[in-house]
Simulated scan of single mutants.
Amino acid sequence: MSLERRKTREVTVGSLKIGSEHPVVVQSMTNTDTRDVESTVAQIEELVEGGCELVRVAVLDEQAAWAISRIKDQVSVPLIADIHFDHRLAIKSLEAGVDALRINPGNIGGAANVDKVVDAAKAHNAAIRVGVNSGSVEKALLEKFGGPTPEAMVESAMHHVAMLEKRKFFNTKISLKSSSVMHTIDSYRLLADRCDYPLHIGVTEAGTLLRGAIKSSVGLGVLLWQGIGDTLRVSLTDDPVQEMTVAWELLRALGLRDRGPEIISCPTCGRTEIGLINLVEVVEKRLEGVIDPIKVAVMGCVVNGPGEAREADIGIAGGRDKGIIFRKGKVIRTVKGGANLLNAFMEELDNFLIERNKG
Rank of each mutant, 00 (worst) to 15 (best):
C266Q: 02
C269R: 14
D239R: 12
L276F: 11
L287W: 13
A253L: 08
R189L: 04
E281Q: 14
H200P: 10
V246T: 02
D239W: 06
V296L: 12
E249V: 01
L232S: 04
D193Q: 14
L199M: 08
A192Y: 01
I277N: 11
I277T: 13
P261V: 10
V302N: 07
A253K: 06
I214A: 13
G289L: 08
T208H: 14
V241T: 15
I201N: 00
P267C: 11
G227W: 03
A213Y: 02
E288I: 07
L276T: 06
M299A: 07
R252K: 10
I228A: 03
L254R: 03
R233C: 02
E249P: 02
A192K: 07
T204V: 10
S187L: 04
I214W: 04
I264M: 12
Q242N: 15
G270W: 14
E205D: 12
L190Q: 13
G202F: 11
P198W: 04
E284N: 08
N278F: 13
R233K: 05
V234Y: 09
L236Y: 01
P267Q: 11
P198R: 11
E273R: 12
G260Q: 06
L279W: 09
K295S: 13
H200K: 09
G219V: 00
E284A: 12
L232M: 05
I277Y: 08
C195H: 10
G227Y: 03
R286H: 15
L220G: 00
P198Y: 05
T208W: 03
C195P: 09
K295I: 11
V283I: 10
V282L: 15
L236P: 04
V283T: 04
G207E: 04
Y188L: 04
Y197A: 01
C269V: 12
S265F: 10
G221Y: 06
V296K: 05
L254N: 00
G255W: 07
V222F: 02
V296S: 03
I263Q: 13
V246W: 01
Y197C: 10
L256Y: 00
G229M: 01
